[in-house]
Amino acid sequence: MSAAAALGEDLATYNFAYLDEQTKRMIRRAILKAIAIPGYQVPFASREMPMPYGWGTGGVQVTASIIGPQDVLKVIDQGADDTTNAVSIRAFFQKVASVAVTTKTREATIIQTRHRIPEEKLQAGQVLVYQVPIPEPLRFLEPRETETRKMHALEEYGLMHVKLYEDIARHGHIATTYAYPVLVAGRYVMDPSPTPKFDNPKMDMSDALQLFGAGREKRIYAIPPHTRVVSLDFEDHPFEIQTFDEPCALCGAEGVYLDEVILDDRGGRMFVCSDTDHCEDRRAAGHRGRLSPDEAYAGHGQVQEDTGR
């Protein structure tokens, strides 16, 4: 009740974390079931949220159902804490749950994400909440929901390899680079949401709990801590993650996922950590990259302007 009292006038009528307690209990039951059956898509009665579906209402509902006043929330979109989507979701929870927020991966108890898993290894006790647009990995080749459910129930996953076969036939290698299908705990094939396949190995045997929420499609699924997550492949075309030719231009990190940043309209560009917190952390610790400004500390936006000058 004290949390509710702290809300602003306009949200005073809302319950803690926006959803009413009955809805949260319903979603928590779905989450518990999802944890009990790793990789299995549990239907739930998705609610209208005060934001459009494309904005991750599934993830928001999962977060709203598990968050408590003591939690520290981090929200990332494509690895960055400062994009519109991440900023609004963070602001939303500050408003409706008055929780502490952070951009530091290691300080967060709940991390809601779209399209990335943080570079820093997640810890026991942390929860990673994914925003999922399309939860069904078989839909690409089998649009009928009745049929895909049956395929999951009977472990008929040949179709997933048909998709990978097509990739190789067309491109000479498995060209799927994001939403790369995985087998969870040796049983259910799962879509890891549109994260780059670079992040797939981080899902395997993670110390953290991973929850996936699809709002429009009304599905929740989960990977409990210490669960085997294997990326599908062929014996003669084994799964491989993306590699990058150069280190991060700002912090010099190697073996991390990089985004291309356009510097000017003359074709100038650089590759920088997609995980902004990781990059800033490294720079704060004194690491430098090829295009590091002289300042000890700067965000991507500033750097772009500096180098453009």
Binding site: L159, E166, I168, A169
Partner: peptide, 27 residues
């Protein structure tokens, strides 16, 4: 048939369904 996947994948599907995991052999 699956009209939107290649002839090779159409023929290979049953093999993959029974666990064949070698692209070269399927082809």
């Amino acid at each position: 048939l699956r009209m939107t996947v290649s002839a090779g994948a159409n023929v290979g599907e049953r093999l993959m369904a029974v666990g064949e995991r070698h692209y070269g052999r399927i082809r």
